[in-house]
Simulated assay, not measured.
Amino acid sequence: MKKALLALAALTAMGVAHAEDTLKKIKDSGSITLGVRESSGALAYTLGDGKYVGFHTEMCQKVVADLQKKLGLAKLDIKYQPVTSQNRIPLVQNGTVDLECGSTTNNAARQKDVAFAITTYVEEVRIAVKAKSGINSIKDLAGKTVATTTGTTSVQTLRKHERASGVDFKEVFGKDHADSFLLLESGRADAFVMDGQILAGNISKSKNPADFKIVGEVLSVEPIACMIRKDDPAFKAAVDDSIKAQIKDGSLAKLYDKWFMQPIPPTNTKVGLPLSEATKAAWANPNDKPMEDYAKK
């Protein structure tokens, strides 16, 4: 009996230690690794030379500042690890990335592998086309070539709609969002299906933004949130508390205005996407619900 109790105590201690892994790791190392994106629209992108910017990138930098205070560290170094749609989940799982701050949809399947901070952006998946293409809805994609990005939920959305409406189109895949947009820009694809803000961001940075437009039905509504490792409630609480504080003091709304409504680098063009009612609702009632809960509405 005593041995069984000792074993149980040891397992409990291991569980507690595991639950505090990320905060302990950050405190012990004096550094945190953020997973960042190179072309995820105004949410997260690179200016080159190791400089990463965007709404989620800057929000996470504020989270890091709050973590530094919480842990009583005089200094906390930020390391930036570029991630793609394909490798972002494995890099969070294996400990390479502590906090992923890109453009990841929170869904039930992913919640089996990782945890999510509270939703900070609610996305609508749309279709980008060339302005003179004559494509105005998903039905106009019949016989066309459609680009999307490998490892994104837009692939499933596309297939679901193909079955539902009987529209037959060819799919091509970009390795990242910039690559997918290049497929559209160069004429190798007739349309690019992706999160609306990613489409708008890539259009705003193109040589001739007026050559493109976002059209068609909203294909899905998706909560976007930052990823962290599973079974680490202390770290999740610390991240969530920082984001809630940013919502409460209005700094998150100011960040949104900065990245979506004002001219942004490198071309000093505006994305021009006002804060949506769905995102306002997510901020008013902070939660980490998956997209399946949105679909039920």
Rank of each mutant, 00 (worst) to 15 (best):
A108P: 05
A108L: 12
A109W: 04
A109E: 08
A109I: 08
A109M: 06
R110M: 10
Q111Y: 03
Q111G: 04
Q111I: 06
Q111K: 15
K112S: 03
K112T: 04
D113M: 15
D113K: 15
D113F: 11
V114S: 01
V114P: 03
A115E: 05
A115G: 09
F116K: 01
F116C: 04
F116G: 05
A117I: 12
A117H: 12
A117G: 15
I118V: 14
I118L: 15
T119W: 14
T120N: 14
T120H: 15
Y121A: 05
Y121L: 07
V122K: 01
E123W: 07
E123R: 06
E123S: 09
E123Y: 05
E123K: 07
E123A: 04
E124V: 03
E124Q: 09
E124T: 05
V125F: 02
V125C: 07
V125E: 03
R126V: 00
I127K: 00
I127E: 00
A128L: 08
A128N: 07
V129R: 09
V129G: 09
K130V: 08
K130T: 10
A131N: 13
A131L: 13
A131V: 13
A131G: 10
K132M: 11
S133H: 10
S133F: 13
G134K: 15
G134W: 12
G134I: 08
I135N: 00
I135G: 01
N136D: 14
S137T: 13
S137W: 14
I138R: 06
I138V: 12
I138Q: 04
I138H: 07
I138K: 02
I138A: 10
I138L: 13
K139V: 05
D140W: 09
D140I: 08
D140Y: 11
D140S: 12
D140F: 13
L141P: 00
A142H: 08
A142K: 13
A142I: 10
A142F: 07
A142V: 08
A142R: 06
G143Y: 03
G143F: 01
G143M: 03
G143R: 02
K144A: 00
K144L: 02
T145V: 05
V146D: 01
V146A: 00
A147E: 06
A147R: 02
